[in-house]
């Protein structure tokens, strides 16, 4: 055996271990990379999580786009949640305000978070929110109700073959945002739930 501890072997092993570690890191790096990729391509229909600037590029009055609003509550979320109107026709560049109604149907205080999604996904980047209740968490005490504003415009650069755009909000219950406390002990969950 020509010395498996020789320098050459060690060097090669070290290189390979570096590749392994780099690829392990790459697995995690795919998370931000995916987000960047989605931002560019609108892959998953996620919209920006930060407010857009007020539109200054003018209104394209030659085109109209139908914007549909869908409100959903996650299945364990007992709130009422709906937009004031189901759809609206806008010109690209035109700023509109739509209000969403939310009511906490329970008797206890709860924290909600609305997560937006746009279909078709490639239009997501052209849906600009100047003000949105989805930028922050919503706190409602028992039986409290609220009208929440969404101020938006459609970027005039939006591809010409997009004529209908659907914005969906899913409202999640994040009162117990530390998920660990619920999931880790099945026995405990069983007692509480049953």
């Amino acid at each position: 055996m020509q010395g498996h501890h020789n320098k050459q072997t060690n060097k090669l092993v070290r290189k390979l271990v570096v590749i392994v570690l780099a690829m392990f890191g790459f697995g995690f790096a795919m998370v931000p990379l995916y987000d960047v990729f989605c931002d560019i391509t609108g892959l998953n229909g996620k919209t920006a999580t930060e407010a857009a600037q007020i539109n200054e590029s003018g209104i394209d009055t030659d085109r109209t786009i139908t914007v549909q609003f869908i409100s959903r509550t996650a299945k364990e979320m007992p709130w009422e949640f709906r937009p004031e109107i189901a759809e609206i026709v806008v010109h690209p560049g035109e700023t509109k305000i739509i209000k969403f109604y939310a009511k906490n149907n329970t008797l206890v205080d709860m924290l909600g978070q609305a997560v937006p999604s746009v279909a078709p996904g490639r239009a997501a980047n052209y849906f600009k929110k100047i003000e949105c209740f989805c930028f922050e968490q919503q706190f409602l005490s028992g039986q409290e109700e609220v009208w929440m504003p969404l101020q938006f415009y459609i970027d005039a650069e939006i591809p010409t073959d997009v004529n209908t755009l659907t914005l969906s909000y899913t409202l999640f219950d994040i009162s117990l945002s530390d998920k660990a406390s619920q999931a880790s002990t099945p026995e405990e969950t069983a007692i509480v739930e049953s």
Partner: peptide
């Protein structure tokens, strides 16, 4: 050696999502 570490990474995210409250794969 190129992809097994990626598998290790993704199951680690699975573990933290399930037990430690991270949200790699949770829309909420």
């Amino acid at each position: 050696i190129a992809v097994m570490p990626v598998l290790a990474g993704v199951v680690t995210m699975l573990l933290t999502d399930t037990y430690f409250g991270t949200s790699f794969f949770d829309a909420s």
